[in-house]
Structures are given as C-alpha cells and as structure tokens.
Amino acid sequence: MDEAGIDWQAGAIFRPVRTGNAFEETVERLLQAIKLGVFGHGDRLPAERELAARLGIGRETLREAIRSLQQAGAVESRRGRYGGTFVTYRMPPPDVADLRRAASDLGEELEDALTYRLVLEAGAAETAARRDLTAEQRAYLRRRLTDLEQAPPEEYRRLDSRFHLAIAELTGSRSLATAIAEARMRLNDLLNAIPILDRNIDHAAHQHRGMVDAILAGDADTARRATEEHLAATAALLRGFLG
C-alpha cells in the first residue's frame, strides 16, 4: 500500500470513532477497509499503534476487534520481524443469486443509494478536475487506472473500488471521501455480485479512461459527464440482472 493510499484511509475510513460502541464501530471500520478493497488479500494492516491513534481508541479495544475478525476468518496475526495483521478475506465470486439477495436486503433504498452515489461521485470527479493536482497525485490516479485495466477477473471488483475511491481522495475533502466510501459500502455487495462480462469490462474501461483524461486535463464538465455516464451504465446493468 502506497503512502497516498494510507493518507486517504486515515481520513475516510480510519477516522476517530464517535459513538459509545467503540468495539462494534472498530470492527465495522476494519471490515469497510477490507471489503472496499483498500486492503486486499495478503496485505498488512497499519501497525496497531497507528491504527489505535487514528481511530481514537485504546489498544485493547483494537485488539479485541482484530481477534473478532480473526475468528471470522477475515484477518490473521503473524509474529516476528515481518509480523503484523494480514488480510485473509477473499471477495466471493460474482453470483446473480447473491445480487438478488443483496438487492432484496436494500429494498426500496436501492434507488436512493444509486442516486446518492451518482451525485457524490460525479461531484467528486468535477471537483478533482478543478484542482491543481500535484505530479504525485496525477501519477497516483494513473497508477490506480493501470492497476484496474490490468486486473485479473478475481481482482477486478476490488481494484474498481480502489479506483473510484482514489478520485474521491483527490478532491482534497475528507468529508466527501468519507461519504463516498460509505455510499459505496451501501452498494458493495451488489456491485461485487455483478457477473464479470467482457463487453461490460471493455465499456467500463473506456469510461474510466475518459474520466481520468478529463480530470487530468482539468475539464470539470467532461469529468462530471463521463462519471455520470459510467455510473448510469452500472445502475442499468444492476437493474437488468435484477429483472
């Protein structure tokens, strides 16, 4: 995980716990980071001291949360010089039955969640395009796009999530990045359950490239339109499989 990614995680997911349910919210935050693809299978989570400080919790609360995730098979702890907490969770393969179950769980909130995501991410792409991005930030966005374009089928959904979250990060607004991460989590099971279709992946690759080109060119209107087109296509695909 590169430093830019870690900086974003601190603001968008690993932000201070605010409720009285510190243990439960810590488990939720860690699972968000894993299921959104910020940390993939085999990745090491940030050090215990760093995580506890970012979440604003005690080390014992964090250890309890990690133990619970170990019992659930999502992470494992390793000792020694190269030890730490490593992700063992693997994203389940796409399945239409899973897609329909996830949609049923959302119920009438599905259209609300799709609209909310569209508004947030289109605004994020427009905002990122209006910013004077550094060379490092521009390289970071290109790297996320390249990772996605070269992704094997089993890694595609995770790297797609990281690509979209990278654009959120480049807005410079931690509040917006957090909202986009939370909006993505509402739809995460649905998005991950969409079957991998070659034609759709090719179409999405063209749209992703258009989004990145517009952001890097500082063309805010085109960045917004390209993002709206891409997310509308994803929503249409979801509705099609839900029948």
Rank of each mutant, 00 (worst) to 15 (best):
Q150T: 15
Q150L: 11
Q150H: 12
Q150M: 12
A151M: 05
A151S: 13
P152Q: 09
P152E: 15
E154Y: 07
E154L: 14
E154K: 10
E154W: 08
E155V: 15
E155C: 10
E155N: 11
Y156R: 00
R157D: 04
R157E: 00
R158C: 06
R158I: 00
R158P: 01
D160P: 03
S161K: 11
S161Q: 12
S161F: 15
S161G: 12
S161R: 11
R162G: 14
F163R: 10
F163N: 04
H164C: 08
H164G: 10
H164E: 11
L165I: 00
L165H: 03
L165Q: 04
L165D: 00
A166S: 14
I167Q: 09
I167A: 12
A168Q: 00
A168D: 01
A168E: 00
E169N: 14
L170Q: 14
L170F: 11
L170A: 10
T171N: 05
T171E: 02
T171L: 06
T171M: 06
T171A: 04
G172D: 01
S173I: 05
S173Q: 07
S173G: 11
S173M: 08
R174F: 07
R174Q: 08
R174E: 03
R174V: 12
S175V: 10
S175G: 08
L176A: 10
T178C: 03
A179V: 05
A179D: 03
I180V: 12
I180A: 01
A181C: 11
A181P: 03
E182G: 02
A183V: 12
A183Y: 01
A183T: 09
A183C: 11
R184P: 02
R184K: 12
R186E: 03
R186F: 07
R186S: 09
R186Y: 04
R186H: 09
L187C: 02
D189N: 07
L190G: 02
L190T: 02
L191T: 06
N192H: 14
N192G: 11
N192K: 14
A193I: 05
I194R: 06
I194A: 01
P195E: 02
I196A: 08
I196G: 02
I196S: 05
I196K: 00
I196D: 13
L197N: 14
L197R: 06
D198S: 13
D198C: 00
D198W: 02
D198M: 04
R199C: 07
R199K: 14
N200A: 12
N200W: 11
I201F: 08
I201K: 08
I201E: 10
I201H: 06
I201Y: 05
D202V: 10
H203L: 12
H203K: 13
A204F: 05
A204T: 08
R209D: 14
R209G: 09
R209F: 06
G210Y: 06
G210A: 13
V212F: 09
V212Y: 04
D213S: 06
D213V: 06
D213C: 04
D213T: 11
A214L: 13
A214K: 04
